[in-house]
């Protein structure tokens, strides 16, 4: 692999994947994870919380797109996105308990 593709090409590919697949997964995680936040912090009804979390998920996805190109390396970008996803999914499961 490393002989076939230059370091630059691998970096770009990994960043583009982070900005598409990674960012979309992050948006999904936020649309789930923000629901308990809205319910507990702002006292929303569940329907409102789901609606708002879905609307706001685009914002999270957008941040992830920018972040995947701004982070020092593609690997670090992926690390951050995965960590943020884990935190949001933890929030989601905490909400379902």
């Amino acid at each position: 692999m490393l002989q076939l593709f230059s370091h630059y090409q691998l970096e770009i590919t990994a960043r583009c994947l982070a900005a598409t697949v990674g960012a979309y997964c992050f948006a999904i995680a936020s649309s789930l994870g923000m629901v308990p936040v809205f319910i507990n912090l702002f006292g929303s009804l569940q329907a409102d919380a789901v609606y708002f979390a879905t609307l706001y998920s685009y914002f999270f996805g957008f941040i992830a797109i920018i972040w995947s190109f701004c982070q020092r390396s593609a690997l670090l970008a992926w690390r951050d996105i995965v960590m943020a996803c884990v935190i949001l999914m933890a929030l989601h499961f905490w909400g379902t308990i």
Partner: peptide
């Protein structure tokens, strides 16, 4: 932004499908 909001049920159905 409004274009994305119009089709939330297509682009971001995950949370509503889950709940």
């Amino acid at each position: 932004v409004s274009a994305l909001f119009i089709y939330i049920s297509m682009y971001m159905p995950w949370s509503m499908d889950h709940h």
